[in-house]
Design a protein around this nucleic acid. Structure first.
Length: 151
DNA sequence: GCCAACGTTGGC
DNA sequence: GCCAACGTTGGC
């Protein structure tokens, strides 16, 4: 079992939309490192923090579960999609994603300031200067600590 | 809206 | 293969 943090621009897709839709394809990741995490390391049943970026404030809003193995990101082939990738083909999809299903929305939103103020989270990847990866692994200890903060 | 940090592109 | 230019991310 692995743990993850998935960023979502809150204006594109928030935790309440996630709850409404219940299960979605995590489309639109266009960074190789983030793709590799999804394609090579995510396992069915892994849990992920759902993180609002570009929010006021930004922070962790809930939990989702990995609900499928990685598969080609279909939006890469859709011309009118903002995630269209001209170099992608059916034979060479380039971009991959997993499906995720809603688990819970936090009672208490955990803001990035809350994360920064917790010394136990000092080496959390997304708190590092210049960190922009939208898919990052997370230790079980960090994951559980953040769940505690959300109550 | 600003801007630092980062990843990608493309000329050489 | 180097690296300047450019586009994007994301906190503030």
């Amino acid at each position: 079992m692995n743990y993850w943090l998935l960023k979502s621009d809150v204006e594109d897709f928030s935790i309440s939309e996630m709850q409404k839709e219940s299960r979605v394809e995590w489309v639109g990741v266009r960074n190789y490192q983030a793709r590799n995490f999804m394609r090579d390391q995510m396992k069915l049943g892994d849990l992920a923090l759902f993180y609002h970026s570009n929010a006021e404030p930004s922070g962790c809003a809930g939990v989702v579960r990995v609900a499928s193995p990685a598969h080609p990101d279909s939006t890469a082939l859709i011309k009118k999609s903002k995630y269209f990738e001209s170099k992608a083909t059916k034979e060479n999809p380039i971009w991959f994603c997993v499906d995720v299903e809603f688990v819970t929305q936090f009672e208490k939103f955990v803001s990035i300031a809350d994360l920064r103020n917790n010394p136990k989270l000092a080496d959390l990847e997304i708190l590092k200067k210049g960190s922009r990866l939208s898919v990052t692994p997370l230790s079980e200890i960090h994951f559980k600590e953040i769940l505690k903060m959300a109550k």
